[in-house]
């Protein structure tokens, strides 16, 4: 089976007032289906940059990015938008929900861009909210929900279009530890269901949920180790 994701010599440089910031400085990485990976590293080490790169929000300055055999680094804007929409589910530290839309509506939005009819959208969004245990909060707006609930809406939104990979950049960073644990439970069970998950975190005990931990430092992979025996799901 082909790799899900393959990064080869990926660089992302920023030019800040004549000075070059090497946010990613030659990253090689292969991610397989149904992996559960945590990315760690000090602040400014390039974790978010790498997540944005994998999530097709950003393009590399240099290097090769293959996603399910397709060359992402050569794609135009519309192709990238389409990959983000169909293949990638993104969960952010700050939730990033549309503040004036209900939970249901928020989960529906990716399906709008996927061109799915209204009735089907509602059905799928309801199912996704049910999966994260929010079927009784569907018509609430973000400011009527707790942080943990907001993050669960964000997870439902990330999953609603059946993506190939779920990317979570410090998903528990803005939550109290109890809510953080709830979110991790959901991610664990999503992994058990066969989803591929990459997770950025500062906390060792959060990172321990994953099967593989990657340590970044100054835009380079310093360490990449298997932390658990992987539960392989035979395709």
């Amino acid at each position: 089976m082909a790799d899900l994701i393959s990064l080869r010599g990926i660089k992302r440089h920023y030019d800040v007032g004549g000075e070059v910031v090497r946010a990613l400085d030659g990253v090689d990485l292969i991610i397989n289906h149904n992996e559960y990976i945590s990315i760690m590293g000090p602040s400014g080490s390039g974790k978010s940059t790498m997540m944005n790169m994998i999530g097709c929000l950003d393009s590399p300055t240099e290097g090769v990015y293959e996603f399910e055999g397709e060359l992402v680094h050569e794609m135009d804007d519309n192709q990238l938008a389409s990959i983000r929409n169909r293949k990638i589910g993104f969960v952010f530290q700050t939730f990033n929900l549309l503040p004036k839309a209900t939970a249901l509506r928020n989960v529906e939005v990716p399906l709008i861009y996927a061109n799915i009819s209204k009735s089907e959208r509602v059905k799928k969004a309801e199912k996704a909210l049910l999966a994260v245990g929010l079927s009784d909060r569907m018509h609430h707006k973000p400011n009527e929900l707790s942080g943990g609930q907001r993050q669960r809406v964000a997870i439902a939104r990330a999953l609603v279009n059946d993506p190939s990979i779920l990317l979570a950049d410090e998903p528990t960073g803005n939550l109290d530890s109890k809510s953080g644990v709830e979110i991790m439970k959901i991610l664990d069970s999503l992994h058990d269901d066969g989803n591929t998950i990459i997770l950025v975190t500062h906390e060792e005990y959060i990172a321990e949920h994953a099967d593989r931990t990657i340590n970044l430092f100054d835009g380079k992979i310093k360490e990449d180790r298997q932390t658990k025996k992987r539960k392989r799901v035979v395709a």
Partner: peptide, 16 residues
């Protein structure tokens, strides 16, 4: 701007 960023992150194209 933030809303536009969110929409793009979840798959909105420029044309959308």
């Amino acid at each position: 701007i933030k809303e536009i960023g969110i929409r793009k992150a979840i798959g909105a194209t420029r044309r959308d």
